[in-house]
Computed example of a mutant assay.
Amino acid sequence: MAGIKEVAAHAGVSVATVSRVLNGSPRVSEDARAKVRAAVEALRYRPNAVARSLRTEATHTLGLVIGDILNPFFAELARAVEDEAREAGYTVVIGNADERPERQDHYVRTLLEQRVDGLLICPTAEVTPLVRDCVAAGGPLVFLDRTLPGLQVPSVRVDGTGAVRELIQHLHGLGHRRIAFISGPDLLSTGRERTRAYVHAMRAAGLEIREEYVEAGDFQAASGQAIAARFLDLPEPPEVIFAGDNLMALGALDEIRARGMRIPGDVALASFDDVAWFVHVDPPITAIAQPAGELGRRAVRTLLERVAGRPVKPVVLPARLMIRRSCGETGRTQR
């Protein structure tokens, strides 16, 4: 098996540079980082932590690597994972990937070095050599909330297809026809799934899918605000802005308010992802709620089955539409 020196020679960089790349250091040029990743892939280099496998003896700790700790959905998810693990006698060590593959790999490597009994990973868009090697090593590993193409890993996730269909039907019933969608990144499984759900739901309702009404954000508030601005500047702006997650919905809300527009009088607003503060704004925001608590609990149970060496099946939980007044409702609120 190739070692770090062979990787350095293949990439034409120093051993120190390879080490920095493998540890997620920002002090490496993008060119050098790309060369190292290509060499790791070509040589099938497996870091020592993976080669020694996920665990040698029980430590009663689990590792959790999540996408963005500042996102309320992930914060609630992490809390549920921690609570369920504690009930089972385990401690959880959490790493925040900040949606960056190199940071994800840094935390995965660190958790492996700490001999966690199992790993829960909410993967970034990129299939990194380290994650692929973790899968090949066959240790206790479960993907949470997202999946990666080409990797056969037990997963625990939410399917919002039915709830998106209910939302579009609801909006159609209220008389809305021009429904714009701020989607998530197409590189992420959740971004692709929500876009497909929107397209299928619009077609099922007999509504036109206009190219200028669909644009991809990055699951961050700034992208939601920028895209909402472009929607509202169109010669024929949409009647509804449907944001693909709660942070992009927040950005859209900021843009609508900055223009002095009324919700839902001037434009309606809906969100995929429900958060606590949605019921405290005026008007309360219609949203698709993901069962983050149940998602985290089921993920821990699934992982512990893997730790025990038992086979597991994928877990798919349904999302739920929460109808409020931001789309023109008459005051009916669900909780």
Results as ranks from 00 to 15, higher is better:
Leu148Ala: 03
Gly224Thr: 05
Thr17Lys: 05
Gly12Cys: 00
Glu166Leu: 07
Arg86Ala: 07
Arg335Pro: 08
Asp233Phe: 01
Pro237Phe: 02
Leu187Ala: 14
Val92Phe: 05
Arg178Asn: 12
Pro264Arg: 14
Lys5Gln: 14
Phe278Pro: 07
Tyr213Val: 05
Thr302Tyr: 05
Glu294His: 12
Pro314Arg: 05
Ala32His: 15
Val50Phe: 09
Glu82Pro: 00
Val13Gln: 04
Arg55Cys: 00
Ala51Leu: 13
Val92Met: 02
Val316Phe: 03
Pro140Glu: 01
Lys5Pro: 08
Phe272His: 14
Leu77Phe: 05
Val93Arg: 11
Val65Asp: 03
Glu239Ser: 15
Cys122Gly: 08
Leu141Pro: 01
Ala137Trp: 08
Arg27Trp: 12
Arg157Lys: 14
Val279Met: 10
Ala228Lys: 06
Ile69Asn: 03
Gly328Asp: 11
Arg310Lys: 13
Ile241Glu: 00
Cys134His: 08
Val312Lys: 10
Ala292Gln: 06
Ala201His: 05
Ile323Pro: 00
Gly331Trp: 13
Arg324Leu: 09
Val65Tyr: 03
Ala258Glu: 11
His176Asp: 09
Thr59Asn: 07
Val153Pro: 00
Gln152Met: 12
Ala216Gln: 13
Thr61Cys: 04
Ile285Asn: 01
Leu232His: 08
Phe278Cys: 07
Arg86His: 09
Met261Arg: 15
Pro101Val: 01
Leu188Ile: 03
Val116Gly: 02
Val93Pro: 08
Gly265Thr: 14
